Simulated scan of single mutants.
Amino acid sequence: MGKPDAEGHGPSDGLPDLPPEWGRVVVPDDASALADEAAQIRRELRRAAGSPRPHRVLVLPMLVLLIALLTTLAGLLAVTWPRAPRSTDRPTSTPSVPPVTLTGRALPALDLVDAGQAPVPLRGLLPAMIILVDGCPCPDVVTEAVAAAPAGVTVVTVTGGRTVTPPPVHGVRALADPAGGLRSFLGQPARPGTATALLVDRAGTVTRVLPELGPIDAYREDLSALAA
């Protein structure tokens, strides 16, 4: 049981004993008598609340929470950010220029056809300037080539399929290539608006390839050399 207080009175019934080091505990009849002690306790609590130590304790958890929040937001942005639609269109490939190694190679023994569908051995027309006009009739450059061709050099125009395109001027041998063997030899498809030419000497060797037939000055010397 409890010990008597300083007045020799025992503890109240039902209340625990108070520590002896507290000394005599006096409960005033008026609570205002404890105002000074309450004010002192409030000042001590405010000083404890204003101490920098609690702030230092709270800074680390707040930083961890902020980093986690930023990481989550970055992940959400990476997933939901609108992306440019992937193009399904295939890039248009530009026809490659015939390889340089084509020069010096032998012209294949190809049989073309004339307007009457009669076979014509291409090597039987050498030396020749062979102009492929399946991408463009290009009458201007064909006419210029005929005018510059030396005697003994045949100017041949070749179209695809079996339809022979009438030549723009007299002196042109117009043929068609139903099997596409000449285009296969060049290794490139026809290009709209472009005529391609080969210069072949009498031995059947390709001396020059003109991927895009242009002004006569660009190949005049090579054309003249075919007559040698």
Rank of each mutant, 00 (worst) to 15 (best):
T157S: 10
L58F: 12
G10M: 03
P192E: 10
G23C: 05
L198I: 08
S12R: 13
E212R: 02
D17E: 13
L175Y: 03
V25Q: 05
P178F: 01
A78V: 12
P150G: 04
G104S: 12
L198P: 04
A106F: 12
V146D: 11
P11I: 01
D5M: 02
P168H: 07
V172C: 05
G75Y: 10
V158N: 02
D17G: 09
D217K: 02
E21K: 04
V153W: 02
R220A: 13
A35I: 02
E44T: 09
L15M: 11
Y219M: 00
R53V: 12
V57P: 07
A203P: 02
A38F: 08
A49T: 14
V100F: 09
D89Y: 13
A174W: 10
R90A: 15
W81V: 07
T165E: 09
V169W: 09
E221Y: 08
H170S: 14
A195Y: 03
L18E: 11
A106W: 11
L213D: 01
V113A: 11
L122R: 05
L63K: 09
A218K: 00
R42P: 04
S93F: 13
A35G: 00
D217N: 07
G2M: 00
K3R: 14
A227G: 01
G124N: 15
A48C: 09
L15T: 10
E7S: 03
L73A: 12
M1C: 11
G181C: 01
V113T: 12
P189N: 09
G10P: 03
M1N: 13
A190W: 05
Q40Y: 03
G8N: 12
T92F: 15
A174P: 13
G187P: 15
L186T: 06
R202M: 01
L102C: 02
T194S: 07
V57M: 12
V79Q: 15
A84E: 15
D36L: 01
G14P: 02
L107A: 00
P4S: 05
A49K: 12
T101F: 09
L73K: 07
R220M: 02
C138E: 00
Y219C: 00
E212F: 00
A151E: 04
R183S: 06
V57W: 14
G214Q: 08
L63H: 12
A228E: 11
E221K: 09
T88V: 13
T88R: 13
R46I: 06
V79D: 14
G104C: 11
M62Y: 14
G23R: 05
D17W: 03
I67Y: 10
A118H: 14
A148K: 00
L63W: 12
D13N: 08
P215K: 06
R90K: 15
V155I: 10
T80Y: 07
R191A: 11
L18Y: 06
P119Y: 10
P178Q: 02
L77Q: 14
V209P: 08
A35M: 08
V172K: 10
K3Y: 12
L110I: 15
T159W: 02
L63F: 13
S87Y: 03
D177Q: 02
A84W: 15
A109W: 10
D111F: 09
G193E: 02
S32T: 01
D89K: 15
G214W: 01
L70E: 13
D177N: 07
D17K: 05
V57S: 10
V209E: 06
V64Y: 07
V172H: 09
